[in-house]
Design a protein around this nucleic acid. Structure first.
Lengths: 114, 114
DNA sequence: TTCAATAGTTCGAAACTCTTGAACTTCTGT
DNA sequence: ACAGAAGTTCAAGAGTTTCGAACTATTGAA
């Protein structure tokens, strides 16, 4: 079977699902990594080290179905990007405030400045 | 036994717990009711109608232990208030953005103005 | 084309959490 | 002291989460 990584449309995003997805330390960390280096990361690179692959896969599914990330197959790997703009448009300030609160020490911006 | 409604200190608040608490539709609705009418509400008044009391109690416990609400016994009932200022100070913008996103239609303020 | 390696996904079982009725505790008014 | 009101605790069934084992898809040789 081939379920091709379904992503919700912007209108379909549910606030509860977004919060639920971010309420897990592992998933919050994944999102944090995706936002800091703003290039697509494959699953292993985005997830904390030593996390079993099956657990990884589960977390990425939850992030994807909440609409937080977009995952595409690229050869043998799946690369992930944050859907930050869409989420900001639908729920302004929510994810940015969470990400700010989640990392009180380091705050590099998108242009690479510290 | 008498566990006297423990509340975490502001420094003890964990972002994950706050998000987790707000990721449930029932609890989000409770918080929404507590913020709109900004007077203390007892559990039955703050919770959605017809929710079993045991379930109510469970949800209030999670909100309390996440640090989102303060619950005090007042005679035979327990009255609840949002700990909005403390949470805003610890995680600026997070809960306010969530509450804004959670109610796109209605925004009556405390004075009864629309 | 076939093989092995790499990157993820699916399955299944144990551990954990959520929901809810039943029983219990606290406080108030009579 | 008793009945009633408001919550809490307990226990059981349903639903999740975690993670190893088996599986699938893609690539790059041989």
């Amino acid at each position: 079977m081939k379920r091709p990584l379904l992503h919700p449309q912007p209108e379909e995003l549910r606030l509860e699902s977004v919060l639920y997805a971010l309420a897990d330390p592992v998933r919050l960390e994944i999102v944090r990594r995706l936002v800091t280096g703003d290039c697509p990361l494959n699953c292993s690179a985005a997830a904390p080290a030593h996390l079993p692959k099956s657990t990884q896969s589960h977390h990425f599914q939850i992030l994807r179905e909440a609409g937080l990330i977009c995952s595409e197959r690229r050869g043998t790997e799946v690369v992930n990007t944050l859907r930050l703009d869409e989420i900001e448009q639908r729920f302004p300030g929510v994810v940015t405030a969470i990400l700010k609160a989640a990392k009180p020490f380091q705050c590099p911006d998108a242009d690479g400045n510290a």
